[in-house]
Computed example of a mutant assay.
Amino acid sequence: MFRRLARMSALFAGVLLVGGVAACDPNGLHSAEHAGPFPHESPSDAADVSLDQALSDYGVRLPEGAEDIAYGALKALDGYPFNVQFSMPCAGVPAFVQDNRLASAGEKTPDQVLTDVVDAGFTPDAGPAYTRAKGTKLPEVVGAVFERSGTCRMFLGA
């Protein structure tokens, strides 16, 4: 009887220990499994292709000096969802827009980037929006840009 009581106590202590570890780790005991294998993969988005491959597939060239890059791209899903966001000097936005064949689309933040814009703390519809210019043979891409402290944050999605 005493052995059974000791085993039950040990089992109970083990359950408490595992519960305590899980409580200290809000992403669960396997949070490292959620880390992406690709550089710049956003923690909130998944990717099954590299950033370079996704940019090539969508005909997007990031500007020199792009910083704080985060992306998600799922080639395995129907429609190949893709999004990328990065920071750049605001003075470089017109050249980036032209190089990537984007055209002005007013100020309504496109649905494809709306969640990322809100998650980044920007107010939707408060910055210029873009869409891939008509007549290009490149895949459709939409975007929005927001300025904060002299730096622009570009959000692109497809």
Rank of each mutant, 00 (worst) to 15 (best):
S9A: 14
A10N: 03
A10D: 03
F12C: 14
G14Y: 03
G14S: 13
V15G: 14
V15I: 15
V15Q: 11
L17Y: 11
L17E: 07
G19W: 00
G20T: 04
V21I: 12
V21P: 03
V21A: 14
A22E: 08
A23M: 13
A23T: 07
C24I: 10
D25W: 11
D25H: 13
G28Y: 03
G28I: 04
L29Y: 03
L29R: 05
H30K: 11
H30P: 03
S31T: 08
E33P: 06
E33W: 07
H34I: 03
H34N: 11
G36I: 01
G36K: 02
F38T: 05
F38V: 06
P39W: 00
P39S: 14
H40G: 08
E41W: 01
S42M: 03
D45Y: 01
A46K: 09
A46P: 01
S50F: 08
D52N: 15
A54G: 09
L55H: 06
L55C: 11
S56T: 14
S56C: 10
Y58R: 11
G59H: 01
G59W: 04
V60E: 05
V60G: 04
R61V: 15
R61C: 13
L62P: 02
L62D: 06
P63I: 08
E64Y: 11
G65Y: 06
A66L: 11
A66I: 03
D68M: 14
I69M: 11
A70G: 15
A70F: 05
A70D: 05
Y71C: 10
Y71W: 08
Y71A: 10
G72I: 04
G72N: 01
A73W: 00
L74T: 06
L74K: 07
L74M: 13
L74R: 11
K75A: 14
K75L: 13
A76W: 01
A76P: 00
D78G: 10
G79E: 05
G79C: 06
P81T: 03
P81R: 03
P81M: 02
N83S: 12
V84P: 02
V84S: 04
Q85I: 12
Q85N: 13
S87I: 05
A91S: 13
A91W: 02
V93L: 15
V93C: 09
P94N: 08
P94T: 04
A95V: 11
A95T: 13
V97Q: 05
V97R: 00
D99A: 14
N100K: 07
N100Y: 01
R101G: 11
S104R: 04
S104A: 15
A105M: 00
A105W: 05
G106L: 02
T109G: 07
T109V: 07
P110H: 05
P110K: 01
D111C: 02
D116A: 15
V117M: 01
D119F: 06
A120S: 15
A120C: 12
